[in-house]
Design a protein around this nucleic acid. Structure first.
Lengths: 151, 151
DNA sequence: TATTGTTATACTCTATAACTATA
DNA sequence: TATAGTTATAGAGTATAACAATA
């Protein structure tokens, strides 16, 4: 118990914190009739306008799954589909003003909900924790540009 | 961007790491035909034998949801229901030997999958990160004992 | 009466397979 | 032929409501 490997201890902590964070995100999403995935999509679209297939790949979902997901959010006016002029097969996804407003509200609620937890560290430790987390994080896949050659 | 509040930066990092960890857990669970929740239940049952209602509350799920979840895992022989002698209404849930073996394998796969990420920190920093994470973590609800008075 | 758990129902999430349109 | 996306279908996850058994 006291003999735990530093790597094991870190994985335990990361997994526990992941479940805790997901619990908060899931609850807040549900309070706005959103699924966790929809909340995540809104967050992604805040500063990106990907095509369906790239978004699906980024989320690790099948294209067909994303179709339904986008359908439901589009019906609620949170995001929209748009034709891609360069390739008529492609459908781009973008956030609407309503979606952006909701996302800002969700973002605020998440920060408030986590404040009691993050507030248990002082300013310096918070910064230190964020810094130590950085190298562990996978860089977010770049969804935006589209290099003409490889793909 | 450089002017970000330390609390905001920490929340961003925690949320990103949560999605990353959940991605790994979901993939590994799926490779064994398990849902993320089932994987989590197996992990919980490793050292606990809760009643249905407590497990549901701990997971933030409705009792009816848990019934189906336990049904499917029980059909696969990973866990079992048992009558509670003290209260005939109660159903306890426990892991089977097969469930325990699978859980150990899953645990190993998770650690391997995360090794490239955690390995980006040296021994000392790993320990430091785990320590800083500790105060942020909600203590896991005690599922085991059952104080006779309150509850 | 209140609590524990299951069942019936309905909707969302998810993947696979088959399809259409475009490249 | 290959790629992008949708639709049809089916199973799992989820909650609400109604119910049975027990307290």
């Amino acid at each position: 118990m006291t003999t735990e490997d530093s790597e094991d201890a870190l994985v335990d902590g990361l997994v526990r914190s992941a479940f805790q964070i997901m619990g908060v995100l899931t609850r807040i999403a549900a309070e706005h009739d959103l699924s966790l995935t929809q909340l995540r999509v809104l967050g992604i679209l805040r500063d990106r306008r990907p095509r369906m297939s790239d978004l699906a790949a980024y989320l690790g979902l099948d294209k067909s799954t994303l179709s339904g997901l986008i359908d439901r959010a589009e019906r609620r006016g949170l995001l929209a589909r748009a034709a891609n002029p360069e390739d008529k097969r492609v459908v781009d996804v973008l956030i609407t003003d309503a979606g952006r407003e909701l996302t800002a509200r969700l973002d605020q609620e998440v920060r408030s909900a986590l404040a009691p937890a993050t507030g248990r560290l002082d300013e310096q430790r918070r910064r230190q924790l964020a810094e130590l987390l950085e190298p562990v994080l996978t860089p977010p896949l770049a969804l935006t540009p589209r290099p003409p050659a490889q793909r």
